[in-house]
């Protein structure tokens, strides 16, 4: 990516932008000569190893401003697809997927860990669980009034808005919540081998990291019990 950037720019005391300042923080002096500036350590071992976690995230001056511009429009379009599903192609499923994709976009631009802090686990879980409960509640209100499940004409609102509320509060919330959750989950990886760039919030795998690193640095991938790794070795 930025392999061609001259190394002496980091030695200048001033005049470097924010991105250059960060790559300078990684300590250019300690690095071997063949390592490009954006990489803190030489390519070795598995991604999960302690060494490779030196730079879990690299800023890109192209991706960040572009995402800043694109993300609001994409999110608005996701809302449009969700809310306008009754009059044009689309609906809660498609709109929820687009809104979750906007979160992926933000995570790629600003770092997955930063997005994980910004979007708390509570929000993701509340979307998924709240969506399921909202769908069930909208379906059960007519039952309480003596009708059938999801009999929209017994709702206190017009039939069209009953459908819309199922799409918006039910399906869109479930899909966007679960997809965002899957994204953060897969970014964390399998818990018991201590992989992932963050601690994942569980805290119980931190004690295992020292044991795992010994096997990682010997570059022995065959003995790793992780099913994810097994799939990659096929």
């Amino acid at each position: 990516m930025s392999d061609a950037r001259p190394n002496d720019r980091d030695d200048e005391p001033g005049g470097t932008g924010a991105v250059d300042g960060e790559s300078g923080d990684n300590g250019t002096d300690e690095k071997p000569d063949d390592v490009p500036p954006h990489r803190a350590v030489a390519r070795s071992g598995r991604l999960d190893s302690e060494q490779r976690q030196g730079t879990p995230y690299t800023e890109s001056q192209v991706i960040m401003p572009t995402v800043k511009i694109v993300a609001p429009f994409a999110f608005t379009f996701g809302l449009f697809v969700t809310f306008h599903g009754s009059g044009s192609p689309g609906g809660g499923f498609q709109g929820g997927a687009i809104m979750a994709a906007v979160v992926f976009m933000i995570a790629f631009a600003f770092g997955i860990e930063a997005t994980r802090d910004w979007l708390a686990n509570t929000v993701v879980v509340a979307l998924a669980v709240g969506g399921t409960l909202a769908f069930a509640a909208i379906g059960l209100i007519p039952v309480a009034r003596g009708g059938a499940f999801l009999q929209y004409d017994l709702l206190p609102i017009p039939v069209k808005y009953g459908l819309e509320s199922v799409e918006v509060f039910g399906i869109a919330a479930i899909v966007s919540g679960v997809l965002m959750g899957l994204f953060f989950l897969l970014a964390n990886g399998f818990a018991s081998d201590g992989s992932g760039f963050g601690d994942g919030g569980t805290g119980d795998d931190i004690d295992d990291i020292d044991d795992i690193d010994d096997t990682d640095e010997s570059a022995s991938t065959g003995s790793d019990p992780s099913p994810v790794t097994d799939g990659g070795e096929r």
């Binding site: 954006h38 991604l47 730079t55 879990p56 995230y57 690299t58 790629f108 970014a187 760039f197």
Partner: peptide, 8 residues
């Protein structure tokens, strides 16, 4: 493609 996902 950079670092096989290492910069994510």
């Amino acid at each position: 493609t950079v670092e096989r996902g290492g910069v994510l």
